[in-house]
Design a protein around this nucleic acid. Structure first.
Lengths: 387, 387
DNA sequence: CGATTCGATCGAATCGTTTCGACCGCAGTC
DNA sequence: GACTGCGGTCGAAACGATTCGATCGAATCG
């Protein structure tokens, strides 16, 4: 076998050199270019030659073209990054995110690419990690102001960037929902049922928030809303507007995380009245008029926590308290309860993002896509008490 | 600005050429090697030179070294693939998997790498996708016989492969659990409570299974067990053995998927007796002696379905039926119920896998790691009825 | 003052593939 | 018989970086 590489004494990182396409070509007695064509099945190659190359590859144990070299040459590597604000366990605890990722992975996979997960909460700087990773495109999910700043650097590298749920107007195509219309529909539904005191549990405005009461009119809060992700902002501002239009009162509480427990905690703040955060133990608050009769949570996960808080306090749903969510997830409620919620096409959101990526990669400049949601009335909303 | 590239008329995939390190070097009046050293901050470079290079890079809009080129040269690309048997939505619906991925991502991220998700259920061949993707290492999760066949090809490329929950003895380091001991502990716990008729709901033995009654002694079933993932095999065989040792009867039903609904369906098969799958409506079956008084599910998700099935049938847990799970996940049971289960360190499993990857990448040959589990007794198991 | 070392820089090889353009017979066509 | 077209093959130029070894002053040491 004349497959010995010349003993150049060059760089050798590993003990054993991998067998390369050049080795195969040499063994088959053809040029590297022909070997490449044969292995890739592209281009005109005589059947006999092809067979010779293939058998040489087999007998040498050639493991196919080196992905890095091929990608470098081709300018495409078949990787689509997903930029997540949180660590994986939190991202995956959100059924909407999971649905989105599933749709994204499916559609991206059909196009022959795979998903690279890039959580921005790692120990090292997020920007460096993102810049050093091979990728054709990046999908940023619901990103805040800090993440938006990473987009130009990606564009400079020629990476296609697509947004999910935001950021609108940042020069990247975005797929999002009609959050305003959905929020409006929820208020209309509950106002029609006679509710006049509303509570809203918002999604966390930032990654490191501790949650708590929120006054959208407050300048500091407006600032935080502006810097946060788009979903929270749109749903919260739409809620304020809808409440004003219906002439009903509304109080906002921010959840520290999109988790059931945090939904419960936020609901407690609403249900136990506008008093100091830590009530004295054994001292139930006569919430009276201040207690909302309808609570809208900005996610089903939070709504679930809200249901739990109601149960703990002996409040019947929907007789004493109406609860609505947002997402339309099947959350395995055991007792036949079905949550009133906004159904959003989570998986379709991912699919659409993948299509935007594909379009942008093929040189087009796709437009934003807005998906529509639907109000699904369940058993957790009913007429306001005393009506 | 003398930054014009010579008009070679060469290949031009895009309308605009990216600015490369060579451009920066030219603009700064240094060689490419010096520019590389300056940009990377490694090697001895005079402060003045470094500054000149950096400012040239800035003014040219250099977006950092091309990851592909750098990776090709270095032989490392900072990507660890996770090979999943299922599509993402199913994988993510398993809290253990999520926990494992979280730990894996965290530890891998600390080492400066990111996670590439590779579901094997895509439309195109799995092998091709895997072979064409850039990666330093691959973590295969709980893989079946078909997936094991992919390992040699990865090794040939110099990719480090590490297994989670299997496959033992395939020449790759594996991190797994003491599944046998855990199963034994569950049987001991329930046998001590006086149970003599057991049911076991197994995880799906294959990706495309439809589930249903299972007879481990049956040769065909043994064959399916052998070809499937390790966890299912070990837990099932250990259950058979434990039942024999305690002198209790046991019936096995395979769930079609690791989903709550499938757990409920499998439980129905156990609780409604060994009769045709679709009982006549309104015709409750006098299961009598055949009905198990204790059901062990091979995951908490399945156990949840089992609880639901019990509730539907008016069976009280644990008075009429004891239910145990496997995983130790917090599954948000509303009514204060806590599941008797095996606590496994899911996140630690991922972390350990990451450590094995790191060790193997640095040239070592790490040993297998077996993590230990713990029986957690909750409120879903109690004395056998009539005792 | 000569020899040695060290810091800064550069040239050139290398990583492994793809692909453009050229070349060369051979068959078909007028 | 000259010309065109095409199937098959090859050489060489990218792709964009890293890194080894060499070079060359300047500074240090004896």
């Amino acid at each position: 076998m004349a497959t010995e590489a010349p003993a150049t004494g060059g760089t050798r990182r590993d003990r054993t050199r991998r067998v390369t396409l050049a080795d195969v070509a040499r063994a088959a007695g053809v040029s590297a270019s022909t070997a490449s064509l044969a292995v890739n099945g592209a281009g005109p190659v005589a059947p006999a030659t092809r067979e010779r190359v293939l058998s040489a590859a087999r007998s040498l144990g050639y493991s196919g073209p080196n992905p890095l070299a091929r990608s470098l040459r081709r300018g495409r590597c078949g990787v689509v990054a997903v930029v997540l604000g949180e660590r994986l366990a939190y991202a995956f605890s959100d059924p909407m995110m999971v649905g989105m990722l599933d749709g994204l992975a499916d559609e991206v996979g059909t196009a022959g690419s795979s998903l690279l997960l890039v959580p921005l909460s790692g120990p090292t700087g997020a920007a460096e990690r993102l810049a050093a990773l091979p990728m054709d495109a990046a999908v940023v999910d619901d990103c805040d102001a800090a993440t938006v700043d990473l987009i130009p650097a990606l564009h400079a590298r020629g990476v296609v960037v697509v947004g999910v749920d935001g950021p609108q107007g940042s020069g990247i195509p975005v797929v999002d929902l009609d959050d305003e219309a959905a929020t409006t529909a929820l208020f209309a539904h509950l106002a029609d049922l006679g509710h006049t005191r509303f509570g809203v549990i918002t999604l966390p405005l930032a990654l490191d928030t501790v949650g708590g009461p929120l006054v959208p009119a407050d300048p500091a809060t407006r600032e935080r809303l502006a810097k946060g992700a788009g979903v929270q902002r749109r749903r919260t501002l739409a809620a304020e507007e809808a409440a004003a239009r219906h002439g009903v009162s509304v109080r906002f509480v921010e959840a520290a995380r999109n988790l059931v427990d945090e939904g419960e905690r936020a609901a407690a703040t609403l249900l136990d009245g506008p008093l100091p955060e830590s009530p004295l133990p054994g001292c139930p608050r006569p919430a009276g008029d201040a207690r909302p009769t309808a609570i809208i949570a900005q996610s089903d996960v939070l709504a679930l926590g809200c249901l739990r808080a109601a149960g703990t306090r002996g409040l019947r749903v929907p007789e004493d308290l109406s609860v609505a969510g947002f997402d339309g997830v099947d959350l395995h409620l055991f007792d036949g309860t079905t949550l009133t919620t906004i159904e959003q096409p989570a998986s379709e959101k991912g699919r659409t993002a993948a299509r935007l990526v594909a379009a942008a990669l093929s040189g087009q400049q796709p437009d934003d896509v807005r998906l529509t949601t639907r109000l699904r009335v369940g058993t957790t909303t009913g007429p306001a008490p005393g009506r």
